[in-house]
C-alpha cells in the first residue's frame, strides 16, 4: 500500500498527463467516428455567439457582394416562377395532386463563422434545432453543394464543409450519370477530387458534376462543379479527376439546409437489406 502511494506520488505528473491525454483522444475519436458528441451544446454555444457578434460587425463591409449574389439568385428563381411561363392551354381545374408529394424543404441560414485553409474546415450558421435542423442534413449555397450538418444546438449548427477530410459526397456526371465520390485532398479550397470514377467512362474538360440520386442528404442534380483536369494512372482502374467547385467558400454568406421528409423511410428500407446478408 505504501509503495502504491509512493508510486502515485512519484509519477503523479505523468499519470495526470496520461489521464488528460486519454480523455482528449477518446472524445476526439468518438466525435470523428459517430458524430454523436454534441459539442456545441457542451460548450454552451458561447463560441457561436462570439462568432455571430464578430460576423454582425464584419458583415457591413461586404453588404454589396451579399446583395449582388442575392439579386442574381432572385433573378434565377423568378425565371422558374409559374407566371414566368406562357400558359399554353385552357383553364385547368385544381385537383389534390397525389402524384407529386413534397420531399424536400429548405431552411435559409446565414454563415456566422467559416474557415477554408485548415485541413478540416467547419462552418457555423445561425439556425439550429429550433428551426427544424438535425445532424446529417445536407447544406447547399446559391451556386452548389456546401457540406453536411454535424452538430446542432438550439439556435446554431455547425457544418462539416466539403473542404474536410471526413466529408464524402456522392456525385455523378450530368451527361451520363456515371458515379463518383467527392473528397477534398487539403490542397486548394477552389478544387476537390472526384474519386472512384471507372476508367471506361468518357471524361472531358468542363463536364458538369452534380449530386447523385444515391444520397439521402441532397436532392438529385444539385450542381457541384466542373471537371478541371483528369488523368488515369497506367495500372489503375479509376480516374484522378480534379473538380473546380462551383461554391466559392471564401465568400460564403447565405446557405440553405435541406430537410428531406423521406430520409427515414429510405434508410429504414436500406437497413432491412443489410440485415439480410
Amino acid at each position: 500500500m505504501r509503495n502504491l502511494i509512493y508510486f502515485l506520488y512519484k509519477y503523479y505528473t505523468f499519470l495526470l498527463f496520461f489521464a488528460l491525454e486519454m480523455f482528449s483522444v477518446i472524445i476526439l475519436y468518438r466525435y470523428n467516428n459517430y458524430q454523436k458528441a454534441n459539442f456545441l451544446n457542451f460548450t454552451g454555444g458561447i463560441a457561436s455567439q462570439f462568432y455571430e457578434t464578430v460576423n454582425n460587425t464584419t458583415n457591413y463591409f461586404s453588404l454589396r457582394e451579399i446583395n449582388d449574389s442575392l439579386l442574381t439568385e432572385n433573378a434565377r428563381l423568378r425565371g422558374q416562377l409559374l407566371n414566368a411561363y406562357y400558359q399554353n392551354g385552357l383553364a385547368q381545374t385544381s385537383i389534390n395532386d397525389t402524384v407529386y408529394k413534397q420531399q424536400y424543404t429548405y431552411v435559409a441560414a446565414n454563415v456566422v463563422n467559416n474557415s477554408i485553409m485548415q485541413r478540416n474546415n467547419y462552418i457555423t450558421i445561425d439556425k439550429g434545432a429550433a428551426h427544424g435542423i438535425k445532424p446529417d442534413m445536407g447544406v447547399i449555397g446559391s451556386n452548389g453543394v456546401v457540406g453536411i450538418i454535424t452538430s446542432v444546438s438550439e439556435h446554431y449548427s455547425t457544418i462539416r464543409s466539403a473542404l474536410n477530410s471526413n466529408t464524402k459526397i456522392s456525385c455523378m456526371f450530368k451527361k451520363n450519370n456515371a458515379f463518383g465520390s467527392l473528397e477534398w485532398n487539403g490542397d486548394d479550397p477552389k478544387f476537390s477530387m472526384l474519386k472512384y470514377v471507372n476508367k471506361h467512362v468518357e471524361v472531358t474538360m468542363n463536364d458538369e458534376i452534380v449530386t447523385s440520386n444515391y444520397s439521402t442528404l441532397f436532392p438529385q442534380g444539385i450542381p457541384v462543379g466542373k471537371v478541371y483536369s483528369h488523368l488515369i494512372e497506367a495500372d489503375d482502374n479509376f480516374y484522378n479527376i480534379k473538380v473546380e467547385l462551383n461554391t466559392n467558400f471564401s465568400t460564403l454568406k447565405n446557405v440553405y439546409v435541406i430537410v428531406n421528409f423521406m430520409k427515414e423511410e429510405q434508410l429504414k428500407v436500406e437497413a432491412t437489406n443489410k440485415s439480410d446478408n
Binding site: T13, I27, T150
Partner: peptide, 27 residues
C-alpha cells in the same frame, strides 16, 4: 494546457483536438 485546449476546441468545433495537442506540449 487542458483549459487552453478546451477553449480553443470550442471555438474551432473540434472536440479533443487542440486539447490533446496542448496537453502534449505542456507535458
Amino acid at each position: 494546457s487542458f483549459f487552453t485546449g478546451l477553449v480553443m476546441d470550442s471555438f474551432y468545433s473540434t472536440p479533443g483536438l487542440h486539447m490533446g495537442a496542448t496537453i502534449f506540449m505542456g507535458y
